[in-house]
Simulated scan of single mutants.
Amino acid sequence: MRSAEPGRRALLNAGRQLLATENLSKLSVNAIAAEANMAKGSFYQHWPSREAYILALHRAFHDDLDAQVAAATADRPPGEEHLAAGIAAYLDGCLAATATKGLLVQARTDAGLATEVAVRNSAAATLITTDLTAMGWSDAAPVAVLLVAAIAETALLELDSQAPRPDLRAALLRIARP
């Protein structure tokens, strides 16, 4: 029996490519299958619906970012250096990924992704809380929630300028200091 993974991966990559120029709401099954050079029926062998595919695309995008952040922070203890490395890895990963704008901006308004976005943001805030606590915050959790939002906004501003914004990255770290 052949593995379904190559086809699944090809379809996810096709969605990433399309999101470099397409609006998430206009991403059709036909366009995804065509971009992957696959029959439309192949799409439905992997996902029961477009919504399930969009969720898988969103998860794959964030799983990649999570892996980049984990690699960048692996050898650092909790604290400002760990936080700075994680923020830089996340923002650099967003800039490098063609689908970032579609999956960050448009995911905010996609009702089908609302729960997933909340779960991802909560997980990020939990990680950041550890850093903020090590930096001296006594009630770090609410600050972490706000910092996650500021990091996401910074990612969007960097996408608009198509380059890192050292001023904003430095400001994120100033915000994080107690």
Rank of each mutant, 00 (worst) to 15 (best):
M1S: 11
A4N: 12
G7C: 02
A10Q: 09
G15D: 03
L18S: 01
T21C: 01
E22A: 13
S25H: 07
A33G: 02
A34K: 14
A36S: 03
A36K: 02
G41Q: 15
S42R: 10
H46F: 11
I54F: 01
H58S: 05
D63T: 14
L65W: 10
D66G: 06
D66R: 14
Q68H: 10
A71W: 14
A72L: 06
P77R: 13
P77A: 06
G79V: 06
G79L: 10
E80Q: 07
E81Y: 06
H82M: 00
L83E: 01
G86E: 03
D92A: 10
G93P: 03
C94Q: 09
L95N: 01
A99W: 03
G102R: 03
V105F: 12
Q106F: 11
T109N: 05
T109R: 13
D110Y: 00
G112S: 00
L113P: 09
L113G: 04
V119P: 05
N121H: 13
N121Y: 07
S122M: 11
S122I: 01
A125I: 09
A125M: 13
T126P: 00
T130P: 01
A134H: 13
G136S: 08
W137I: 07
W137M: 07
D139R: 10
A140R: 09
A141D: 11
P142N: 04
V143I: 10
A144Y: 14
A155D: 11
L156P: 04
L159V: 10
L159P: 06
S161K: 06
A163D: 12
A163S: 15
P164R: 12
D167P: 12
R169K: 05
A170F: 05
L172A: 00
L173Y: 02
R174L: 12
R174G: 03
R177T: 14
P178T: 12
P178F: 14
